[in-house]
């Protein structure tokens, strides 16, 4: 049977700390928020219900849902598609073929074209004709000749960003160039090597479980069998492969 990679997130274990999201930024070298884009492949949605003191607060980790019925793939106008499904169910993106038309971003129910602070978007767009990682290209110094500058950091480390994690993938660059979109690829460069997505490895709570849902012996499949799972915007018909089990506040 074909694999279907998925992520099951146990909200009771998740503490909303952000370690996954920041680890993702260090693994995938995503740039800093700018031009109405967050470039956060992993992020959080927060929700408050009720009134003091009977209230609940939920922090929900969000990432690309790697939908089985992915509107972004459908929308991609390029041949062969720059946004496509891999054999193991990952929604993959090809850097080379992407023309940056953002039709995927428009089609994805979990994405927005402009991301205000407090919002999130699966797909981000690297503005055309503008070098990415502007932060590490800025030559201005806080104190003339006394402090460094972003550009100097890049020069000294021969790297943009300086903490760039170098990896290779046939479809994908570890740092994206301008004029194309980007999104979570389930760390396919790691998964193909038998490693876990880095957000899973970095999560201190053990809330993120990654695995093949078609393999009934996988932890992910077992959790889905054991618990009732939710997906985001089920009505959109996208058949997401990121599942949420249990609740952030313990059920009493």
């Amino acid at each position: 049977m074909k694999k279907q990679y998925a992520m099951v997130i146990d909200l009771q274990k998740c503490v909303g700390c952000g370690a996954c999201a920041i680890a993702c930024k260090s693994e995938n070298n995503t740039q800093m928020r700018q031009d109405g884009q967050s470039f956060n492949w992993a992020d959080f949605q927060h929700e408050v219900k009720g009134k003091f003191p009977d209230m609940t607060h939920t922090s929900r980790p969000v990432l690309c849902n790697h939908c089985s019925n992915a509107p972004c793939v459908e929308a991609c106008p390029v041949t062969p598609k720059a946004m496509f499904k891999t054999d193991d169910g990952i929604t993959m993106h090809n850097d080379e073929r992407c023309i940056g038309c953002r039709q995927c971003q428009k089609a994805c129910p979990y994405s927005q074209e402009t991301v205000e602070i407090g919002q999130w978007s699966v797909i981000s767009f690297n503005k055309a004709a503008k070098d990415t990682h502007a932060f590490y290209r800025d030559p201005s110094e806080l104190i003339m000749a006394g402090t460094a500058s972003g550009a100097e950091m890049a020069r000294r480390t021969h790297s943009i960003p300086p903490y760039r994690t170098k990896y290779s993938h046939p479809e994908f660059e570890d740092v994206r160039r301008s004029g194309i979109v980007e999104k979570c690829i389930f760390c396919d460069h790691r998964v193909k090597k038998g490693e876990l997505p880095f957000c899973v490895e970095a999560c201190p709570s053990g809330a993120r479980v990654f695995g093949d849902t078609q393999d009934s012996s996988s932890e992910a499949a077992k959790l889905l069998k054991k618990h009732k799972a939710e997906v985001l915007k089920a009505k959109a018909g996208t058949n997401p492969n990121v599942y949420y089990i249990r609740s952030f506040k313990v059920k009493t």
Partner: peptide, 18 residues
């Protein structure tokens, strides 16, 4: 494991304003 303070340290190390 580390909490989110861990990965932020990278931007402390490579802070342009050092």
């Amino acid at each position: 494991f580390l909490c989110p303070k861990g990965p932020i340290s990278l931007q402390q190390l490579y802070d342009p304003d050092r």
